[in-house]
Amino acid sequence: MGLRDLGQQAIHASTVVPRLWTAATRAGVGPSGAVTALLVSQAALRTAAVHGAGVPGRTNALRHFLWQAVLTARIGREAAAAIAVAQEAGSPAVKDSRIDVHNNAVGQDYGAAHAAELAQGSAAAAVERLVPVAIEKWDADELIWIRPH
């Protein structure tokens, strides 16, 4: 990976919060929905880092699944999908983005089917409750990575 690629990744990573906020408000969820999007994103990032550690690709796959499942349950599939698209926009890692789109869709499907239970409690608690499901989906190859696992 060249210096230019690293620079592009750093810029993309450093703009996550403004991109999520803008995408959420453009999706029509208002300031409270935008805050929800940020809280769910933070919880998914932290939880996936803990439960995905040590297995290549698993942290990223879990993060996208957890994030989109809880977000879909709390603000609706259309808004969650719009936020996911905005998150991937401009990503310098095209192959990784395609994988993220897949894992986001798996999360959206799960979130839509289990909205009532995922809407309960804090964002962090909802994300944490989903960990066994996410691990099961990873083990069953429903969540993917660049290489087979």
Rank of each mutant, 00 (worst) to 15 (best):
L118N: 08
A10E: 01
A49S: 15
I83Q: 03
A53C: 13
G33W: 04
A82P: 15
A43S: 13
Q120N: 13
T47Y: 01
N103T: 01
V94C: 08
G111A: 04
L39E: 09
G121Q: 11
M1G: 14
E136T: 06
Q87T: 09
A69H: 03
V94G: 12
H149D: 09
D5Y: 05
I11H: 11
R58L: 09
S97P: 06
I11K: 08
L62V: 12
A125F: 01
N103Q: 06
A24E: 00
A84C: 11
A126S: 13
H102S: 04
T47V: 07
A37F: 00
H12T: 02
A113D: 09
L6C: 11
V40N: 06
R63P: 12
A53T: 13
A43W: 07
S41P: 14
A24V: 06
D139G: 10
Q8K: 09
D139W: 00
L3F: 07
L66S: 01
M1S: 09
Q9M: 08
G121M: 07
W145N: 14
V16Y: 02
V50F: 08
P31F: 10
A124F: 04
R147W: 07
Q68A: 13
T47L: 02
A49Y: 12
R77M: 02
A73Q: 02
A34I: 01
S32F: 09
V50L: 04
T72A: 14
A89C: 08
A84I: 03
P132F: 03
W67H: 15
S97R: 06
E88T: 05
D139M: 04
A23H: 09
E117D: 10
N60H: 12
A69G: 14
G2T: 03
N104G: 12
A126N: 06
R26Y: 00
G2E: 05
A105G: 14
E117R: 14
L45Y: 13
R4V: 02
L118I: 08
E128P: 15
F65P: 15
